Simulated assay, not measured.
Amino acid sequence: MKRHEFIKISGLAGLGVAIFPNFSFKNFSEEFTRNQLIGKGNPDIIGDSYTSKMNKLTKEAFNKMKVAAAKENINLEVVSAYRSFQRQKEIFEGKYRRFTSQGLSPENAIEKIIEYSTIPGTSRHHWGTDLDIIDANAPRPANVLMPENFHGLGPYCNLKVWLDKNAHKFDFIEVYTDNGNRKGFRYEPWHFSYAPVSIPMLREYQQKIDVKKMLSEEKILGNEFFSEAFVDRYVKENILDINPKLL
């Protein structure tokens, strides 16, 4: 191993141990490829469905968290985990076609999509580290991923209280917090990220991925309307304006 690589990995490992008590040195022992970072293939992903596919270290940590939650009659259920580039592309382009056919301009359609949905190649779900979580023991509303379900008299209030108190013990951090000063994606009380893997992936994403170039290369529908100013704002607000514990 080259000296500068050893220093880089050792430094990141030390940081991980200081912040996350369950951190393992092996989490930082590899660099990530472009395909891994944009959701086009990752040997570290295990599982066989969109609710069970996730990074192998994320799955280990989630299973431990699930056991702990069960002791308090909370049944952690993942409703969305790893999402491939192709699947995110289908979601984004389906919404783009629908909104533009309803009369929205391409620019306004894109703005509406990114209130909740990511542009393919930029989703944290591409990494297999991020999970959308509900409580399978609670009454299931028609639309499970709604903020009101996690507050007040919502069915997932007990889950939210438990996650706020315990998720960090397993190195899971809420991504899109209820912070009035935060821009980008709206509040998602169900979305948690396995920080020991997602933090280094985000850092390498910033180093390796030119978002505007990638979107053009991948021929995302509507990419001609992704101006330089839009992409700069999207990166700043939608990719980076997250819980600071994940930066």
Rank of each mutant, 00 (worst) to 15 (best):
residue 152 G to C: 00
residue 46 I to K: 07
residue 165 K to I: 04
residue 154 G to A: 00
residue 150 F to A: 04
residue 17 V to E: 12
residue 239 I to Q: 06
residue 104 L to C: 06
residue 227 S to C: 10
residue 70 A to M: 13
residue 193 S to G: 03
residue 20 F to K: 00
residue 173 I to W: 07
residue 30 E to N: 10
residue 66 K to P: 05
residue 151 H to K: 15
residue 131 L to E: 08
residue 194 Y to W: 08
residue 205 Y to E: 12
residue 112 K to H: 04
residue 243 N to P: 08
residue 108 N to Y: 07
residue 171 D to N: 15
residue 95 K to L: 15
residue 91 I to L: 11
residue 70 A to N: 15
residue 244 P to N: 03
residue 133 I to C: 08
residue 197 V to P: 00
residue 34 R to M: 14
residue 174 E to S: 15
residue 111 E to G: 00
residue 18 A to M: 12
residue 33 T to H: 04
residue 93 E to Y: 01
residue 173 I to M: 08
residue 179 N to C: 06
residue 142 A to D: 15
residue 82 Y to M: 05
residue 122 T to M: 04
residue 115 E to D: 15
residue 183 K to D: 03
residue 116 Y to I: 13
residue 30 E to L: 09
residue 59 K to C: 01
residue 92 F to D: 01
residue 76 L to C: 10
residue 95 K to Q: 15
residue 146 M to F: 07
residue 128 G to R: 01
residue 102 Q to K: 12
residue 74 I to F: 09
residue 96 Y to I: 01
residue 8 K to T: 11
residue 136 A to S: 14
residue 125 H to V: 01
residue 153 L to H: 12
residue 247 L to A: 15
residue 126 H to E: 12
residue 48 D to F: 06
residue 195 A to Q: 04
residue 241 D to W: 07
residue 219 K to G: 02
residue 191 H to W: 08
residue 69 A to D: 08
residue 75 N to K: 15
residue 22 N to S: 14
residue 129 T to E: 13
residue 103 G to N: 08
residue 119 I to T: 10
residue 48 D to T: 11
residue 57 L to T: 03
residue 43 P to V: 04
residue 151 H to W: 04
residue 32 F to T: 06
residue 203 R to C: 08
residue 99 F to S: 01
residue 161 V to D: 12
residue 198 S to V: 13
residue 35 N to D: 15
residue 31 E to L: 08
residue 79 V to M: 09
residue 62 F to W: 09
residue 233 R to N: 14
residue 112 K to L: 13
residue 14 G to Q: 12
residue 103 G to P: 11
residue 236 K to T: 13
residue 247 L to V: 10
residue 132 D to E: 02
residue 32 F to A: 03
residue 205 Y to D: 11
residue 38 I to E: 03
residue 196 P to H: 06
residue 199 I to L: 11
residue 186 R to Y: 03
residue 150 F to N: 05
residue 233 R to I: 06
residue 42 N to C: 02
residue 89 K to F: 02
residue 223 N to P: 00
residue 125 H to S: 05
residue 84 S to V: 12
residue 9 I to L: 05
residue 48 D to N: 14
residue 18 A to C: 08
residue 62 F to K: 09
residue 171 D to Y: 05
residue 192 F to H: 14
residue 182 R to E: 14
residue 118 T to M: 11
residue 151 H to N: 05
residue 133 I to A: 05
residue 206 Q to I: 09
residue 207 Q to G: 01
residue 172 F to E: 06
residue 204 E to C: 05
residue 48 D to H: 11
residue 225 F to P: 00
residue 63 N to E: 15
residue 126 H to Q: 12
residue 166 N to A: 07
residue 103 G to Q: 09
residue 108 N to C: 00
residue 40 K to F: 01
residue 101 S to Y: 02
residue 116 Y to V: 14
residue 90 E to P: 00
residue 74 I to A: 11
residue 183 K to H: 05
residue 150 F to M: 03
residue 59 K to Q: 09
residue 163 L to Q: 05
residue 57 L to Y: 14
residue 166 N to S: 04
residue 117 S to P: 00
residue 128 G to W: 01
residue 154 G to Q: 02
residue 242 I to V: 10
